[in-house]
Amino acid sequence: MHVIEGKWKVLILWEIRDLPRRFGELRRALPGISEKVLAQQLRELETDGIVHREVHETVPPKVEYTLTEEGRELDAALEPLGAWGRRRMAPPGAAAVA
């Protein structure tokens, strides 16, 4: 549970589940997160083997974040929780959101 603890880690995982994302893209996709917290959360996810950080040798340097194999496994494990949350967000009597 420590791997996904906190307000932002699961949201970060959702943002990088399908495509590599750059730091600035993540910052824009997660309104309310500070750069300091985003950097810290990404470092922790990288340390835990969930996120891979790739630095491209360009000017300026380009850094992309992707899920590792363990990160994809964690994403699959979190999918039922996401489905549950989507059902809970649907108005009463409305069809569940896929």
Results as ranks from 00 to 15, higher is better:
75 D>N: 11
2 H>T: 14
60 P>L: 08
21 R>L: 10
9 K>M: 04
29 A>V: 06
1 M>S: 15
2 H>Y: 12
10 V>T: 07
90 A>G: 06
98 A>C: 05
67 L>H: 09
52 H>Q: 15
39 A>Y: 04
52 H>R: 15
35 E>H: 10
44 E>P: 02
59 V>I: 11
36 K>T: 13
27 R>I: 05
14 W>T: 09
26 L>Y: 01
31 P>M: 06
12 I>A: 00
18 D>A: 12
64 E>M: 03
97 V>W: 12
65 Y>G: 01
71 G>M: 08
26 L>V: 06
16 I>L: 00
30 L>S: 04
73 E>L: 14
3 V>S: 09
24 G>S: 12
62 K>C: 05
18 D>Q: 09
19 L>D: 14
40 Q>C: 06
63 V>C: 03
59 V>G: 04
55 V>E: 11
55 V>T: 09
51 V>W: 02
47 T>A: 15
92 P>E: 12
83 A>T: 15
22 R>M: 04
89 M>V: 07
68 T>W: 08
24 G>I: 06
60 P>E: 05
22 R>Q: 11
44 E>K: 09
69 E>G: 06
57 E>Y: 10
66 T>F: 05
84 W>R: 14
51 V>L: 05
52 H>I: 13
54 E>G: 06
87 R>L: 10
56 H>Y: 14
23 F>Y: 08
6 G>F: 06
37 V>H: 07
57 E>Q: 13
87 R>S: 13
69 E>Q: 14
61 P>K: 12
55 V>G: 00
22 R>W: 00
41 Q>G: 01
76 A>G: 12
60 P>A: 07
13 L>V: 03
78 L>S: 03
42 L>H: 01
94 A>F: 13
11 L>M: 08
84 W>V: 13
23 F>W: 04
